[in-house]
Each structure stands twice: as structure tokens, then as C-alpha cells.
């Protein structure tokens, strides 16, 4: 994959920007690729719709915006409705199905992967790690950055003392993703 363009969306406070930052950091510092992160910035970063845009590339990155993402990660229905039309055909959609709603009509031309990340985070006792569960899920499904680099980036981007919880959340999301991928390939074969 030469260049991957990722869009992440959700509510302010869900750690959407941090999730984008962690993937970018994993790519740029630990996988030695190029990464450029931009973000929609404004009052929405304190509650409303919020998004981060990340380009990961083996080449130099010039134009920094993501117009048509090939990966969309959403943690709210609003973000799904707002950003999914721009997702390219055969693009990957990773979403929190509790937040986006189970019965939503997902476009058949995209590869959709659902995880109840927020509920899983609540089961861990900390709703705020839902974004990290989503990162684990992302690591299991997409080969953009390595799992190891993501773990390194998480460790260096979160408050000291919360490493264990975050890495556990990451692992939960990763395992959920692995099972889902296996299930889907079993269905196909």
C-alpha cells in the first residue's frame, strides 16, 4: 500500500484526535514511514462532531488534506452520516456499532467492520479507553502500521500510570478484530 488516507470521526471527548495521533506516531516514529495528521478544529473539539485526518505513506506527503479516505473509523452516528459518503469504493469502514446503531444501512461497496468499542470499554470500567479498543481493532484489520508500533505509540502518548489499562484495552480490541476477520474469511470459504 503506497499511501493510506484515514479519516477518524466521533464526538469531542472520545479521543478521536488522540487515536489519529497514535496511528500517525506509530507510522512516523516506529515504522519509519511518513505521516501527516490534520484535524478539524473548533468548538466541536469540546463536544460536537470532531474529526482527524491522517495520511500514512512510504513517499513524501505533500498535500495534507484527506478528501476521499480509504479508511474511515467512526465512533458516532453523526460522524458516520457526515463522512461515509466520501469513503472510496472498496474502502474500509471501522465503526462502533452501538454508537452508530446496529440497524444502519451500510453501503455494500465498502468493507465494513463493527465493534462495540464503547460497551467493551465500559466493561473494562473506563469508557474513555473506547478509542484505544478501536485502535486494537484497527491493528487487527488493517495492515497500515504494525501492532508493535501502535503499542509503543500508545505507551508514549497516554498519562503515566495508565499503561496497563490502555494496553489491555488495545489487546481486547485486537482480539475482537482477529476473531471477526477469521469469521468473515470462514464465511467466504
Amino acid at each position: 500500500m503506497g499511501q493510506t488516507e484515514i479519516k477518524l470521526g466521533g464526538f469531542g471527548g472520545q479521543g478521536i484526535i488522540l487515536a489519529g495521533y497514535i496511528i500517525g506516531k506509530a507510522a512516523a516514529l516506529y515504522d519509519k514511514k511518513n505521516a501527516t495528521l490534520t484535524q478539524s478544529y473548533g468548538p466541536e473539539s469540546r463536544g460536537g462532531a470532531c474529526s482527524a485526518k491522517l495520511i500514512v505513506s512510504d513517499e513524501e506527503i505533500d498535500y495534507p488534506e484527506v478528501l476521499y479516505p480509504n479508511v474511515l473509523i467512526v465512533m458516532s452516528k453523526e460522524a458516520y452520516l457526515k463522512f461515509s459518503p466520501a469513503l472510496i469504493e472498496n474502502g474500509s469502514l471501522l465503526y462502533d456499532d452501538d454508537m452508530v446503531e446496529n440497524n444502519i444501512e451500510i453501503d455494500k461497496s465498502v468493507r465494513a467492520y463493527a465493534i462495540p468499542a464503547t460497551r467493551m470499554a465500559e466493561d473494562l470500567g473506563k469508557k474513555i479507553v473506547a478509542n484505544i479498543i478501536m485502535l486494537g481493532f484497527f491493528a487487527a484489520i488493517m495492515a497500515v502500521v504494525t501492532k508493535r508500533s501502535l503499542e509503543e505509540a500508545i505507551k508514549t502518548s497516554i498519562p503515566k500510570g495508565s499503561e496497563e489499562l490502555n494496553l489491555m484495552a488495545f489487546q481486547k480490541g485486537f482480539e475482537y478484530g482477529r476473531k471477526l476477520v477469521k469469521l468473515q474469511s470462514d464465511v467466504k470459504s
Binding site: A35, Q39, I61
Partner: peptide
């Protein structure tokens, strides 16, 4: 400009 100020890279 704002894009450069808020853009994150290595």
C-alpha cells in the same frame, strides 16, 4: 498559517 501550525508530522 493555521494548517502548518496545527499539522502534526515527524
Amino acid at each position: 498559517d493555521e494548517v502548518v501550525g496545527h499539522m502534526t508530522e515527524k
